[in-house]
């Protein structure tokens, strides 16, 4: 059973400290134990891989040596044949056969070593998967614990103020009022900015003598005199 099953059990059991109660379960201990074992096994495997790698390199070198020797003796056997020294050629051929037998033996050893290395790598991958899978399971427990922590302080606050009815709708009203005020302020801000813009244009126009000139006592008097003259 995965951790979710344990969580369901804890919920059904009405556990208050759900995270804590799951941590205490056998399942969690098994996951943790498996992680520890897998980590140890990987550690050991990596060490033995290092040793095997050294052997692999030595064997490979030996194989290359045999191949070079065989090629070399083959050339010499051909030369012996060409120069009509049949007996010598036979002797060289026998030596080549010996070298080939040794090379085959080394090659078998090399292949089985490679197989062993592959096997260890496969094992590491498998253990690694176990570690990740188990960590994901444990992460669920941790999440439950953290959610509980993140909820508890406010929950107790809510519980304390729960005596007041309509707690949520009152809080919502306050949020909406605040947001509306903020929006109004933004609109007011925009309006002010626009207003400032316009007045600055007006003052520029006035300064350059374009548009309405400001009324002065004299200009009013002139206007009144003109009216009187007409009348």
């Amino acid at each position: 059973m995965g951790i979710l099953g344990n969580i369901v059990k804890a919920i059904k059991g009405g556990a208050n400290e759900m995270g804590e109660s799951i941590v205490e379960t056998q399942a969690v201990r098994i996951y943790e134990q498996e992680i520890r074992e897998a980590e140890e096994a990987i550690e050991k495997a990596k060490k033995s891989l290092t040793g095997l790698k050294a052997t692999e390199i030595a064997l490979k070198r030996k194989l290359n040596g045999y191949e070079a020797d065989i090629a070399d003796y083959e050339g010499k056997a051909m030369q012996a044949l060409e120069s009509g020294q049949e007996a010598l050629a036979v002797e060289v051929a026998e030596h080549i056969a010996e070298l080939e037998a040794e090379k085959d033996e080394t090659s078998t050893e090399y292949n089985s070593l490679k197989e062993e290395v592959n096997g260890i790598n496969r094992m590491i991958k498998k253990r690694d998967k176990t570690i990740h899978k188990n960590k994901r399971e444990l992460e669920k427990v941790k999440t439950v614990q953290e959610l509980q922590k993140a909820t508890s302080s406010i929950s107790s606050n809510i519980a304390a103020t729960n005596s007041t009815e309509h707690r949520v709708s009152k809080a919502l009203d306050r949020v909406k009022a605040k947001q509306a005020r903020y929006k109004d302020e933004m609109v007011a801000g925009d309006w002010m900015a626009e207003e400032n813009d316009t007045s600055s244009i007006d003052s520029k126009l006035a300064a350059s003598g374009i548009g309405k000139s400001s009324q002065t006592g004299n200009s009013v008097l002139e206007r009144l005199k003109a009216k009187q003259a007409k009348g």
Binding site: K135, E146, A150, I154, A171, L172
Partner: peptide, 22 residues
């Protein structure tokens, strides 16, 4: 401001939690 958000963390995630109501 009436509804607080709480942030907690696990080994891999950040959790943001807002308790709504009881």
């Amino acid at each position: 401001s009436e509804f607080q958000v709480n942030i907690a963390s696990t080994e891999t995630q950040l959790l943001s939690v807002t308790p709504l109501f009881l």
